[in-house]
Amino acid sequence: MINLQIKSILKNKINLLYIILFIIVFIIINLAINLPEIIYKYYDSKIPEEYKEQARTLYIADGNIELTNEDMENLKKIEHIQDVKIKTLGMQDYELKLTNIVVDDWKNCSKIQNILDNQGILTGREYEDDWIKGYEKINIFMNLVVYMSIIIGTFTILISYINILKNEKENHKLLYILGYSKSKIRYIVCTQILAITIIGFFIGIIIFDIIFQYVIPNILNIELEQDMYKSIIINILVTIIPLFIATGKSTSHIKDFKM
């Protein structure tokens, strides 16, 4: 029964267009999920190698603050802080002691600075060039782009599901007349929609993978690593939530069917 219904929905040329739309949506959603990684790696590639260590080091700007060993140990417990150490600079007539806070990655320095700022500890960066400043600015908009892409992608999928169901309305009503129960029809509806989505998803993921693993790295001369866990969760959510919404009402049109 299901094979026949899936074959029927795939034979409809309009649904092939929806498959193409889903391919595009899944490519865009997965690019959006991994956009922070792409942006970060690109900017990271622009920071000179010799300054990478300094780029992730902060110093306490207020010379009057003296941290005890206990304070330093407490600081190390903060996420992303790798080490806290005292650096002694020998000046002409005196020694200057600086407390350095080593962060795991230069991209997390702003976050740590904000945390320490809230604790009354003002910090400065040992190294900050135009690329780092550029990254800080773009980071604000990047998250907005990511969330908007996912929301728009989800809505696109939802509207597509609703239209697919609209197009299949007459066939579903026919099934009702032939004696298919509403629960069976709902099952068929879910399976038909998932069939279209899964085809679009797999082709979309393959194309995204080619773009992510080969095209972007070659163009930007960087190495990328996909956040698989986040990708899987978000891809499932952008499919399941519209599926629930669309199929929840999928058989409501049937009850009014008459000849």
């Binding site: 009702y176 007349i177 032939l178 004696g179 298919y180 129960s181 509403k182 629960s183 000849m259």
Partner: peptide, 13 residues
């Protein structure tokens, strides 16, 4: 569900 069964078994449209 029972009406659907009747349509399936007893009635042709």
């Amino acid at each position: 569900e029972e009406k659907a069964k009747i349509r399936m078994k007893e009635i042709g449209f």
